[in-house]
């Protein structure tokens, strides 16, 4: 039975279902229950935004608050994964990756290859990404290009509650390390979500809107901006197709190229900084493989090459807007 569920609740439900199904699934992170060792309530927070609220009550010792010690607990999650567990480690804000990145990109990502195929590391590292929360430069980044660059990692960034649940369950069951990027400004977004467990395979883009005259490729929050732009453009008789990548590694370039071959125009939208971004990657690939189909130069709409600013006045300028996306398409269609 499908219910209208927020992305936050869909993520909670995905973890709950998998912890119930598979005793090797464990959850760890800072304040994911909250209240450990104190005199007050246990499960006081359920994560800083309450995403994991209630899971401690159901799964007790398999839901572990950690000390503020990212290298140690992220590494422990990876080590436990290499020893047969299926840990989900929450990094709270993925910006904190800086302090524990070695464990992720030098250890988890490389075990299988370095060890000649003889290791599996089924760990999920999930956390918040993205701007718009007035959380400033160290709590707002879209670091997806950084993770996507690393062979051995899989990188997922859902745009809606339905995809979030299916992709997270797939991440937990997947035998490779997965970086699961949750856009904090999408936690409240609602979608019809089946109550049952289901999986969405990696490397399959979604097409939330079909169209003939231009392709907008986006992921995460930017899918919504792209759809908003498409809505505006529809009133101008510009029929836009929106591709939601949702899985950045592996990436479904086939769907992007098919779409570009149909429309002849490509705008790639990325909340990340422009250099070596997902948008740059998509445009490079599409240009290489669908050059003859292009009727206009592809355009990347990204954040500027700056840290994320604090002031709302600046942050709103930083995040790619529907208006900028629509303008890019107009420029191509002219």
């Amino acid at each position: 039975m499908a219910r209208n569920l927020s992305m936050k609740d869909a993520i909670n439900e995905a973890i709950d279902l998998e912890m119930t199904r598979d005793p090797s699934v464990i959850l760890m992170g800072e304040d994911i229950a909250g209240g450990s060792g104190g005199q007050g309530e246990m499960d006081a927070w359920g994560g800083p935004l309450g995403v994991t609220k209630g899971l401690w009550g159901k799964h007790k010792e398999r839901v572990m608050d950690t000390p503020l010690s990212e290298s140690a607990f992220i590494g422990a999650a990876i080590g436990a994964a290499a020893c047969g567990m299926r840990p989900i480690a929450e990094l709270m804000f993925l910006d904190f990756m800086g302090v524990c990145f070695d464990q992720i990109f030098n250890q988890a990502a490389k075990f299988k290859y370095m060890f000649g195929g003889k290791a599996e590391t089924p760990v999920v590292i999930r956390g918040m990404v993205g701007a718009g929360f007035r959380a400033a430069a160290q709590h707002s980044q879209m670091l997806t290009p950084l993770f996507t660059h690393i062979p051995g990692l899989k990188v997922i960034c859902p745009s809606n509650a339905y995809d979030a649940k299916g992709l997270l369950i797939q991440s937990i069951r997947d035998n490779d390390p997965v970086i699961f990027c949750e856009h904090k400004n999408l936690y409240a977004s609602m979608a019809d979500v089946p109550a049952e467990a289901y999986t969405i395979p990696f490397g399959e883009a979604a097409i939330p809107r079909e169209g003939k005259s231009a392709t907008i490729v986006a992921y995460g929050l930017m899918v919504h901006r792209a759809l908003e732009a498409a809505e505006t453009l529809a009133k101008e008789k510009i029929d836009v197709e929106v591709v939601d990548l949702r899985s950045l590694s592996p990436i479904d370039m086939d769907t992007v190229i098919e779409s570009v071959e149909k429309t002849g125009r490509l705008v790639a939208v990325d909340e990340a900084n422009p250099r070596c971004s997902i948008a740059a990657d998509v445009i490079a690939s599409a240009t290489e493989h669908a050059f003859k189909a292009l009727k206009a130069a592809p355009i990347a709409i990204t954040a500027p090459h700056t840290p994320v600013p604090f002031s709302a006045a600046l942050e709103d300028l930083y995040i790619p807007s529907a208006a900028r996306i629509a303008d890019a398409v107009r420029k191509q269609v002219k």
């Binding site: 339905y162 089946p194 049952e196 289901y198 999986t199 969405i200």
Partner: peptide
């Protein structure tokens, strides 16, 4: 259509 395919996959991807 795209939606027909997506709806069928949504169903087929449910556990069981």
């Amino acid at each position: 259509g795209r939606q027909m395919i997506d709806d069928i996959l949504k169903y087929k991807r449910l556990d069981g």
